[in-house]
Computed example of a mutant assay.
Amino acid sequence: MHISQRALRSFVICFAILMLLPVAGTAIVGTGIVTLPLFFFTNTGALSCKPGNLWFGKVMVGGSNVLSARLSNTGTSNITISSVSVTGAGYSLSGLSFPMTLGPGNSAQFQVIFAPLVQGRVDGSIGFTSSASSSTLYVSLHGTGASTGVLSASPSSINFGTAGNNVTQLAALTNTGTASVTVQQISASGSGFAVSHAALPWTLASGQSATFSISFTPTAGSTSSGSVSIVSNAYDSTLSIPLTGAGASAGILSANPTSNSFGSVQVGSSASQYQSVTNSGGSNVNISQANVSGSGFSISGLNLPITLTPGQSYTFSTVFAPTSSGTASGSIAIVSDASNSSLT
């Protein structure tokens, strides 16, 4: 074909594909003055894996976890997978034999096992070497080797019920696993809850226990919920103990009768009447004092201090023994920790 100077001519170059490989070459035009590079790409298989990342979570040292994945040929040509490489301590692969061939649209399932040798995070990968367009396909692996120490709490939850004053309960932590556990932190949350314990950290050998105190200081008439959180290097690194409790209504002290009239009493003699005080509230009442005023008045049978539980009553005597004629008046002032701290 002759091309005149400064003329343009088009032409077609034909290439017959003989093998499934990328091919490059040159076309020489004229007498070697012009060389055209030629590139030809064949349609090859494409290898993919689902999922492309495998997350094993926490696995006890000495134990194992198995996850499945699937290789697929998403191309239009056969793929030969010649070999596989696995990195990361504790990871291994099963379910495939190499070399293997996947036809277009075909797939093969395999399993990856994570059997950690030590505690801590372990990352790794699987590399599949094949004749696909991307010669090596990588699958990421992630897992954490966990302690074989297992921490349990007794009781597993605490209900303080309805309380009027500070209440304390003991709780025990036990290492039910096979490796030692270090307890690093014990803390309480929720209104009125607190913990008391020996200095941390604690190290508990397999089967060993340790106790600590949980207290509840209620607010009258309110309900509280919270928890105790224990942080350790056990398999379950954060252990929680749910807490509940309610504050009883405050103690209320009432008198019956509310007043005493002795009428006329002869000088030199005495008269007595019964007097009762009742705790009509929801919390204990502690009576600490009873002060009597007025000439000739006294009380008998009230041995202080006394504690009245909710609904409880106490009866004593009031005495009038006049020392002179005329009208006399007085009172009894009862001092307590009730909401009405002074009852007259």
Rank of each mutant, 00 (worst) to 15 (best):
S288F: 05
G251W: 12
L243T: 03
S276Y: 05
N279Q: 01
Q275V: 07
P242G: 06
G226M: 03
V292F: 12
V285L: 06
G282P: 03
I230P: 05
N256Y: 13
N260A: 14
P242L: 11
S259F: 13
S276Q: 03
V267R: 00
G294V: 14
A246P: 03
V292Y: 09
S283E: 06
L243H: 04
N256I: 14
A234Q: 10
Y235I: 08
S249V: 10
P242D: 10
N260Y: 14
S249C: 04
P257W: 07
N279D: 05
L243M: 03
Q266D: 04
I287W: 03
N279E: 03
A290N: 00
N279Y: 02
G247S: 15
I241H: 05
T244A: 14
G281M: 01
S261D: 15
N233M: 05
G226C: 04
S293I: 14
N233K: 01
S293P: 12
S259V: 11
S280V: 12
Y274P: 12
G282S: 08
A248M: 06
A290P: 01
G245H: 13
A290D: 08
T278R: 05
T258C: 07
S288H: 00
G281P: 00
S254T: 12
V267W: 00
G263N: 08
S229E: 02
A271W: 01
Y235A: 10
S240I: 11
N233G: 05
I241G: 06
S227G: 13
V285I: 11
S232C: 03
G247V: 15
N256A: 14
T238S: 12
N291S: 14
S240E: 09
S280Y: 06
S264M: 09
I287P: 02
A250R: 08
S237F: 10
S272H: 09
N286T: 15
S283M: 00
G263D: 13
N291T: 15
S227I: 08
V265M: 08
T258D: 11
S259G: 09
A234V: 10
D236R: 11
S261G: 15
T238W: 04
V292S: 10
G251P: 06
T278K: 07
N260I: 15
L253M: 13
I230E: 02
G281C: 04
I241C: 04
S272E: 12
L239W: 02
S240A: 08
G281W: 01
N291D: 14
S254W: 06
A246D: 11
L253H: 09
I287V: 07
V285C: 05
A250C: 09
S229A: 07
A250H: 08
S269F: 06
S270V: 03
A255C: 07
S249D: 11
Q266K: 00
T244M: 07
G245L: 12
S261E: 15
T258N: 15
A290T: 03
A255R: 09
V228P: 04
G282T: 11
S254V: 13
Y274K: 10
